[in-house]
Design a binder for these strands. Structure first.
Length: 374
DNA sequence: CCCCCCCC
């Protein structure tokens, strides 16, 4: 590639290469031979608003808002939908986002208007390697790079090695952003709808994922709940660009996936093994999984809640080598009592412990509990 | 931004 083409490629196609070369020749003449062709090309680029053709190419980990204009190469790891919005001057703006990564990390790109069209028209896909020139600023979840009219995003033949800093579940803390994590899909909740503060209807759903270090609840907002449609239990999934918040009710840290996050299936291998607690070790106020055999069966009962709705409950007992405990089965779980026999091997996963009837400790198996009859 | 551990 000659040096004029090299500089031309940083212009993102704002003019044709022929026109660019013509302008470079004119510039050389204009300068009466005072500058070489490369310098002339850079001056023309500058005239066209691209000011940083001479700047060095940097790595993603070194990008921060203080640098301003940045040039780098990266591989596209996720593509988000383009949204249109109304500008104050009455024109319609377009904005789209990409997550890109190199061997030092990942960063979010925001593409505006005609650059956003590259996403909309399907010209940019996951796995594409890109030359990027834009400007870094502080965004919604850390530094992001904006690519507007004079920004550049071109495919390149270079193959870029990617390292997505992947966290282990046990390392996730309240307040973290840009979380990438993989796990086994352990549970998928029903989708709930709710009224947002602005009056519109929101949707929310949860999944539970686990890796070799633990498990964590994931909350999916609005259209992100649809990501689970193609998934089934035991699939390995990955989360890109999630953020962590402590749940006000449970006081447990959860991963949230909003507009900028991705949840998808992956081929990665993830090990998950459920951790079963000996019945004798159970104390009130925690979530537990136990493994044992049925040692008592109660009756199925319907009851009315204070709010007028009805629900079902049944009680069973489960024993292991260390003790025996009562389990309250709520809702659909209650029907299990008719399928169980004494000595049936059983696993009760994620049931909540509390002091129950006669102040004896018991487990509540509610809608977040999974029960496996072995 | 939601769920909210409920029975006898």
């Amino acid at each position: 590639m000659d040096e004029i083409t090299e500089i031309y490629n940083k212009l993102g196609g704002i003019i044709s290469e022929d026109d660019f070369r013509k302008k470079v020749e004119e510039k050389v003449e204009q300068m009466s031979g005072l500058c070489d062709v490369k310098t002339a090309a850079m001056l023309v680029a500058h005239d066209l608003g691209v000011t940083d053709t001479a700047k060095e190419v940097i790595k993603i980990k070194d990008i921060n808002p203080e640098i301003g204009n940045v040039n780098f190469v990266a591989k596209v790891v996720s593509v988000f939908d383009v949204r249109e919005f109304n500008r104050n001057d009455g024109t319609i703006g377009k904005v789209g986002n990409l997550m890109v990564a190199d061997d030092t990390g990942s960063i979010r790109l925001t593409l505006w208007d005609e650059r956003a069209d590259l996403i909309k028209n399907g010209n940019i896909e996951v796995g594409d390697c890109m030359e990027i020139s834009g400007y870094a600023k502080d965004g919604y979840s850390g530094t992001e790079v904006n690519i507007g009219r004079y920004g550049v995003i071109n495919t390149t033949d270079q193959n870029i090695e990617v390292r997505l800093d992947s966290q282990k579940i046990s390392e996730i803390r309240d307040g973290m952003g840009d979380i990438n994590v993989s796990g086994k899909l352990l549970d998928i909740s029903d989708v709930r709808t709710f009224q947002k503060k602005d009056g519109s209807q929101g949707r929310v759903g949860n999944i539970l994922i686990g890796d070799e270090t633990g498990k964590i609840r994931v909350t999916l907002w609005d259209e992100k709940v649809d990501s689970t449609k193609e998934m089934k239990l035991d699939d390995t999934i990955e989360i890109i660009n999630g953020y962590a918040r402590t749940n006000n009710f449970s006081q447990q840290v959860e991963i949230q996936i909003g507009n900028h996050g991705v949840l998808r299936k992956t081929d990665a291998e993830v090990e998950y093994r459920e951790n079963f607690t000996p019945i004798a070790d159970i104390i009130p106020g925690e979530s537990y999984s136990i493994e044992g055999s049925v040692s008592g069966l109660g009756e199925l009962r319907e009851f009315d809640r204070d709010d007028g709705t009805t629900n079902m409950v049944s009680n069973i007992y489960v024993s292991d080598d260390t003790g025996r405990i009562r389990i309250a089965l709520w809702g659909d779980h209650a029907l299990l009592v008719d399928e169980l026999d004494i000595d049936t091997p059983i696993q009760i996963i994620d049931a909540y412990s509390k002091a129950g009837f006669n102040d004896e400790i018991e487990l509540s198996a509610g809608n977040r509990t999974r029960i496996t009859i072995m």
